[in-house]
Computed example of a mutant assay.
Amino acid sequence: MALANNLTAILNLLALLCSIPITASGIWLASKPDNECVNLLRWPVVVLGVLILVVSATGFIGAYKYKETLLAVYLCCMAILIGLLLVVLIFAFVVTRPDGSYRVPGRGYKEYRLEGFSNWLKENVVDSKNWGRLRACLADTNVCPKLNQEFITADQFFSSSKITPLQL
């Protein structure tokens, strides 16, 4: 039993040490408010780092001091975190699985249309309150350099026949 506790303590110490750069990168992202894309990631990264820190500290202390109650709390929290990770993974897979691509005859690339994406993704991208953030994010990254000048709403962007995937 001592080997299992020592191994658990070592693994949780490593996880605790890994959570410090995760939390630090979230705090660093929070100090950079100039990019809309970064603003979407800053607090989830900080929360993830803190959760990993707390859960791994609980596991480390429980395994190092042989505290069964702390180990039970650690196992429950870890099971919840793994379950949440699986839910997010399945959600991301379901939402991004249809990629909206269509083969173009005689071309070496695919064309992309909004109708080919999942309904949830279409509704959230076309929604006018989300479009402002997405537009600012795309314009800041220079993915779409003409985005600041030509398109005010999401409908104008998606109804434009001038834009192909190669022009983005």
Results as ranks from 00 to 15, higher is better:
residue 2 A to R: 08
residue 3 L to G: 09
residue 3 L to E: 11
residue 3 L to Y: 10
residue 4 A to C: 15
residue 4 A to N: 09
residue 4 A to W: 15
residue 4 A to E: 12
residue 5 N to V: 04
residue 6 N to P: 12
residue 8 T to Y: 03
residue 9 A to L: 04
residue 11 L to K: 07
residue 11 L to W: 04
residue 12 N to C: 06
residue 12 N to Y: 01
residue 16 L to I: 11
residue 18 C to N: 14
residue 19 S to K: 00
residue 22 I to A: 05
residue 23 T to H: 02
residue 25 S to L: 12
residue 25 S to F: 07
residue 29 L to D: 02
residue 30 A to T: 13
residue 35 N to I: 11
residue 35 N to R: 06
residue 36 E to D: 09
residue 39 N to L: 12
residue 40 L to A: 13
residue 41 L to Q: 05
residue 43 W to G: 05
residue 43 W to D: 06
residue 44 P to W: 02
residue 44 P to S: 05
residue 46 V to M: 07
residue 46 V to F: 06
residue 47 V to K: 09
residue 48 L to T: 12
residue 54 V to W: 02
residue 55 V to N: 01
residue 57 A to W: 08
residue 57 A to Y: 05
residue 59 G to A: 04
residue 60 F to S: 01
residue 60 F to A: 04
residue 61 I to K: 06
residue 62 G to I: 01
residue 64 Y to M: 15
residue 65 K to L: 10
residue 66 Y to G: 13
residue 68 E to R: 13
residue 69 T to E: 13
residue 69 T to Y: 14
residue 70 L to G: 04
residue 75 L to N: 09
residue 76 C to K: 15
residue 76 C to S: 09
residue 79 A to V: 07
residue 81 L to W: 00
residue 81 L to H: 01
residue 82 I to D: 04
residue 82 I to E: 05
residue 82 I to Q: 08
residue 85 L to K: 09
residue 90 I to G: 07
residue 91 F to L: 14
residue 92 A to P: 05
residue 92 A to S: 14
residue 94 V to P: 06
residue 96 T to S: 07
residue 96 T to L: 15
residue 100 G to W: 02
residue 102 Y to M: 10
residue 103 R to A: 08
residue 104 V to Q: 08
residue 104 V to N: 05
residue 107 R to H: 14
residue 109 Y to K: 11
residue 109 Y to C: 06
residue 111 E to Y: 15
residue 114 L to E: 01
residue 115 E to F: 10
residue 117 F to Y: 08
residue 120 W to S: 10
residue 122 K to V: 00
residue 124 N to M: 06
residue 125 V to I: 12
residue 126 V to A: 03
residue 128 S to L: 08
residue 130 N to D: 04
residue 136 A to Y: 02
residue 137 C to E: 02
residue 137 C to L: 08
residue 138 L to C: 14
residue 138 L to H: 13
residue 140 D to E: 12
residue 140 D to F: 05
residue 141 T to Y: 06
residue 143 V to R: 10
residue 145 P to E: 03
residue 148 N to D: 08
residue 150 E to D: 13
residue 153 T to R: 10
residue 153 T to H: 14
residue 155 D to K: 14
residue 156 Q to T: 02
residue 157 F to E: 00
residue 159 S to Y: 04
residue 159 S to C: 07
residue 160 S to M: 15
residue 160 S to N: 10
residue 161 S to R: 14
residue 162 K to D: 15
residue 162 K to S: 12
residue 165 P to T: 07
residue 167 Q to C: 15
residue 168 L to F: 13
residue 168 L to P: 00
